[in-house]
Nucleic acid binder design. Sequence first.
DNA 1: TATGAATGAGAATTCATTCAT
DNA 2: CATGAATGAATTCTCATTCAT
Lengths: 214, 214, 214, 214
Amino acid sequence: MTRSKSRKVPDITSPWEPFEDRRRARDIKREAVLRVAVHLFLEQGYDRTSLNEVAERLNITKPALYNYFANKEEILVECYSLGQELSEGALTRMREQDGDGLFRLRGLIRGHALTMAQDFGQCLVRIDDRVLSPEARREVRAGKRLIDAGFRAFISEGIADGSIRPCDVKLTAFAIAGALNWIGHWIQPDGDRSPEQIADEMALRLTEGIANTA
Amino acid sequence: MTRSKSRKVPDITSPWEPFEDRRRARDIKREAVLRVAVHLFLEQGYDRTSLNEVAERLNITKPALYNYFANKEEILVECYSLGQELSEGALTRMREQDGDGLFRLRGLIRGHALTMAQDFGQCLVRIDDRVLSPEARREVRAGKRLIDAGFRAFISEGIADGSIRPCDVKLTAFAIAGALNWIGHWIQPDGDRSPEQIADEMALRLTEGIANTA
Amino acid sequence: MTRSKSRKVPDITSPWEPFEDRRRARDIKREAVLRVAVHLFLEQGYDRTSLNEVAERLNITKPALYNYFANKEEILVECYSLGQELSEGALTRMREQDGDGLFRLRGLIRGHALTMAQDFGQCLVRIDDRVLSPEARREVRAGKRLIDAGFRAFISEGIADGSIRPCDVKLTAFAIAGALNWIGHWIQPDGDRSPEQIADEMALRLTEGIANTA
Amino acid sequence: MTRSKSRKVPDITSPWEPFEDRRRARDIKREAVLRVAVHLFLEQGYDRTSLNEVAERLNITKPALYNYFANKEEILVECYSLGQELSEGALTRMREQDGDGLFRLRGLIRGHALTMAQDFGQCLVRIDDRVLSPEARREVRAGKRLIDAGFRAFISEGIADGSIRPCDVKLTAFAIAGALNWIGHWIQPDGDRSPEQIADEMALRLTEGIANTA
DNA sequence: TATGAATGAGAATTCATTCAT
DNA sequence: CATGAATGAATTCTCATTCAT
C-alpha cells in the first residue's frame, strides 16, 4: 500500500505532508468504516447491527469509531449521502447533456439503476430512514425528493418537447422510481445480468409505454 | 356489543355459544393486536417498536400480549400473512377468471396495488424480513415468491396468447412488482388519488409498453 | 379402580359417601400433583420448573393447581414432608424395636437409604430448602434435624450398650448421613443394584469401622 | 493501592508493565466477581441470585459484569472450575506421592474435605448443575467424575497392594464421597472444628472400616 | 489515536398469582 | 372445579455512548 510507505518518510519531503497524509489516512479509514457499515446494515438491518460488529470487522474497537463519526446515526447518514451522490451525479450529468426529455429520462433511469446495484445506493431504499432523528431524516428525504423531482422534470420536459406522450407525470415518475428502487431488493452480485445490462433494459422497458415513438 | 348481550343468556340459545363467543372474542383481540402492531411497525420500524407500546395502545399490559402470540416475531409473521393474503387473493381470483394474459396481469396489478394501500400489505415491503428467524423468513419469502411467480405466469401467458408483446419476462415482472411495491412507500391515506384510482392507473400505465394493442 | 365405580353410584348407597368420595378424589389429585411436581423439581430444579409444566403434565391448567395448594411453596413443602415421613417412619420403627444401638442404627441406615431411592426422599437433599420462606424452611429443617438426631441417638446408645466403639458421635452421624444422602444423587432407577441391595450394603459398610465386633 | 502507584511510573520500569498491570487488574476483578457470586449463589441459590445483586455488592452496575463474563452461566461454570481445581489438586498431589492405596486415599479424602470447607468447593455439591446448558453441564460433570474416578482408583490400588480390605469399590467410593460432600452442607465457618480437624477425622473415620490394619 | 471499562436505558420474556366466569 | 385472561414484578442481556488513560 502506498499509504503505509508514505507514512514512513513524511518529514523528509515536507512538514505539511504529514497533515495531508493524516487527513488522507483519516478519510481512508472513514471510508472503510462506511463500507463495512453499509454492508452490515444491508445484511442485518440498521438496528440489528451493533457498532461492535462494525468495529470488529475493521479490527478496531468500538470507541475507535467515535474518532471518525459522532454517533451511529451519522454513519448511516453518510451512507445515505454516498448513495444519494450516485444518483444525483447521474441527474446532474443528464441535466448538462444535450438531448430531449426522453433521452435525459433514460439517462437518469440508467444512472439510478446503476446506483441500486451498489451497497450505498441500496441503502437508500433498503434501510428505513425512520430510524433517523427528525432533522437527519428531513435532510435525507430532501435528497430523495431531489431525484424524484429529476424524474418528474425530465418527464415534463419530454412531454413539452414531444418526445414523451402526455401522461400523469407524478404517477409515472413514481412507477419508474419504484421499478428502479426495487432493483436494490432483488439484484444479486453474481446474477446472470450485469448491472449495466439491467440498467439498459430498464431504460427501454420503463419508457416504452410513454415514448412517443410512433 | 353483541358479545356482552349473549353472555347474559347463554344457556337459552345454545350451550356452545359461550365457547364460540370466547373464541370470537379471542380472535377479535388478536386482530386488534395485529392492527395496532402493524401500524406501529410501519410508523417506527419493527425493532424500534416495543411490545410495551403495542400493549399501551391497546390498554393492556405487555405480558397480556403473550396470551395471543408466542413472541414478537409471531406478531410480525402474522402481519405478513395478512398482507400476503391480500395479494394472493387477487392472484387466485384472476387465475380463476376467463381472459387473456394481459387481462389477468392487469387484474393482478390492480389487486397488488390495492394491497399496497393497506397497512398489512405495506408491511410486506416496508418491514425488512431480515429481522425474522431463518425459518420464519423462509416461509415469508416463499409467500412473496408466489406473487412474483404470478406476475411472471400471467406475462408468459399473455405472450403465448398474443395479448402481450414478447419481452424479458423476469425483468418485466420485477419492474411491475417494483413499481407497485413502491406505492407502499409514497401513498398517503389522504392523498388526492384514491387507492382504486391508483390501482387502475397503474394497471394501464405499467402495461402500456408491453401491451400488444396494435 | 374402586374410585370410579363408587363415583358412578354415589346417591344410592349413602348421601355421605359423595363427600368421602370427593375428599378422596381430592386427595388423589393432590397426590398426583405432588408426584408430578417432585419429579419435575428433581429433573429441572425447583425454580426452573413452572407451575405450567406441572399442570400440563396433569392435563389441567395452572390455576387449577390453586385448588389443591395455596402456592408453589406449599407444593414443595409437602414434597419435603412426604420424603421426611419416609425416614421418620424408619426412625420410629427402629425406636420401637428391641435391639442394641448398632442394630437400630443399621435399621435407620437401611430406612434412610431406601428413602433416598424415592423421589420424595431425594427432594430432601436435592432441592435446596433455601428457596423456602423462612418459616417453611424452619419447619423443614426441624424435620431434617429429627433424623440427624436419630442417627446420633442410636450411635450414643450403641456406645453406651457396647455395640458401638466410642467415637465422635456428631461427626460419625454426619458422615453416615452424608453417605446416605449422596445416594439420592447417584442412584439410577435402572441401576445394577436394587435399592434394597444398596441399603443393606450401606448398613454394613457404614458401620464396619465403628462396630465393636471384636 | 499499588496499582495506582505503578501506574504513575510505567515507562521507567518497563513498557510492558502497564499491560501486565491491566491484565492483572482485570484478573483481580474477575476473581472478585467470582468470590461475590459464589457466596451469593450458596446463600440464596443460583436462580434466586440476580446479577444485580452480584453487581451491587461489587459497587458496579450489572452490565459491567459483562465485561468479564459472557453471561451468568459462565460465572457459575468458573466457580465450579475453581472448586474443581481444589480437589483435582489434591488428587494430583496424591497421585504423585509415594505410598500405598490407603495412604493415597486418605490424602484425597483430606483434600476433598478441605475443598468442601471453601465456597468454591461447596458450590460443586450445593449448586445444582442442572441449571447449566447441556454442554456446560457435560463439562462440569466430567470434572466431577474425575474426582470420583480418583477415589475408586486409590481404593482399587489399596486392595491390590493389600492396604485396603476387599470391598465393593464403587459403593465404597460413593459412600466416602457422599460423606465428604455432605460436609459442604453442614460445616460452619465458626464451628468448633477447624476444616483441618474435620479433614483429618474424616480421613480416619471413613477408612476405619476398610483399612486392613489387622 | 485507540482502548478497556463502565454505565444508563431499555427490551423481550417468564412466571406466580389473581379473578371473573 | 376449572379456565382464559390479565398483571406486576423480576431478570437476563444488549447497546450506544462516555471517559480516563
